[in-house]
């Protein structure tokens, strides 16, 4: 029997509610909880905290591993994390030309494009061009630093805080920070509207 998924799911939920097995409010609560779950969003929270708290930002730039651990994050491929900060005339981007090294504790597992020979070989060779192709156009006088993670040190980019976000909560700010911005192939998103 072919199903319309949305109808089928509604059928399922309504039956389970009527049988007293679940309450819809409980389902709502679970969804909210899991949409905050760990993964690369850890990095977004680190960035949001750095944007909101100047003292935290200083600690993060001085000792990334320790500051990230303050938020409870750490583990394999995160023995030593260095955070590099973007500025109006300075843009950082991270690669592992030799394989696929990536800061798992804050960014999860790397995307396929990060691990492919095209990105790995070209970002060190012609970074401004590759970034432009990926949607990030940088004027010629902006310094680009490509961090090649050839040892066990892992790098996280601290993107610039978008304009128009004054007074935002950390949770709201974290929503603007993508994995791509923390690798350095994109900016943090601008506020909508």
């Amino acid at each position: 029997m072919e199903h319309a998924d949305d109808l089928r799911t509604e059928a399922l939920e309504s039956l389970l509610v009527e049988k007293g097995l679940v309450a819809s409010e409980a389902v709502d609560a679970i969804l909210r909880h899991y949409e905050q779950e760990v993964g690369p969003l850890n990095g977004a929270r680190v960035v949001a905290r750095a944007w909101s708290d100047a003292a935290y930002r200083r600690r993060l730039l001085a000792d990334g591993t320790a500051a990230i651990a303050e938020l409870g994050y750490g583990g394999p491929q995160g023995e030593h994390i260095v955070v590099v900060e973007n500025a109006p005339r300075l843009h950082n981007v991270v690669v592992c030309t030799l394989c696929s090294c990536y800061p798992w504790p804050v960014l999860g597992l790397p995307p396929a494009w990060y691990k492919d020979p095209a990105y790995r070989s070209r970002i060190v060779r012609e970074p401004r061009q590759v970034l432009a192709e990926m949607g990030l156009a940088l004027p010629g006088d902006v310094e680009i630093r490509v961090w090649d993670s050839s040892a066990e040190i892992r790098y996280l980019v601290l993107p610039e805080r978008p304009a128009g976000t004054e007074g935002w909560s950390e949770e709201r700010l974290a929503g603007l920070v993508s994995r791509d911005a923390m690798i350095g192939v994109a900016r943090a998103a601008a506020p909508r509207g």
């Binding site: 509604e10 399922l12 939920e13 409980a26 679970i30 969804l31 899991y34």
Partner: peptide, 8 residues
């Protein structure tokens, strides 16, 4: 519906 299913 995917989220509802997950939550259920």
């Amino acid at each position: 519906w995917e989220g509802r299913l997950f939550g259920l």
